[in-house]
Amino acid sequence: MSRQSNRTTDSKKMNSELFTLTYGALVTQLCKDYENDEEVNKQLDKMGYNIGVRLIEDFLARSSVGRCQDFRETADVIAKVAFKMYLGVTPSVTNWSPAGDEFSLILENNPLADFVELPDNHSTLVYSNLLCGALRGALEMVQMAVDVKFAQDTLRGDSVTEIRMKFIKRIEENLPAGDE
């Protein structure tokens, strides 16, 4: 297997259906493997986190985005650069809290859920919860502890899909203990 290490850092386009269907198969399997939806949500979040932790490196290497000065800039980068790069959509950023530490991403269409209809017996399943984990993991790697969750989901009958992001704290970089 030969891997091109010097390939250009442009994003390679791929068929988004393959991604959507693969994700669907994953969720379906998790629903079989676990008794309740809560547990599936948790697993999706965990997988997303593990993806996010790695994805941030790819993102930083490919985009020319530097360190964000504030949470508003972070929101812009997530919506306009990151979502565009990986999912091909640009959510709108709205509903800022007065303190500027909370905002919503409104997704016109959710690429993960293109062909999905949730059956009635999965009313508490957060189908695209992987996204929350990925956002959380990626931001944690750039020193931001953030709470991410779906506030609304068209799959559950809401009119839009809304991801709510709340800034918790900056993770301080410290010298490891005993390194004086």
Partner: peptide, 12 residues
């Protein structure tokens, strides 16, 4: 080294 070696060969 970061973009083309570390990310491509380690992170991915």
């Amino acid at each position: 080294i970061y973009s083309n070696l570390y990310v491509e060969l380690v992170v991915k």
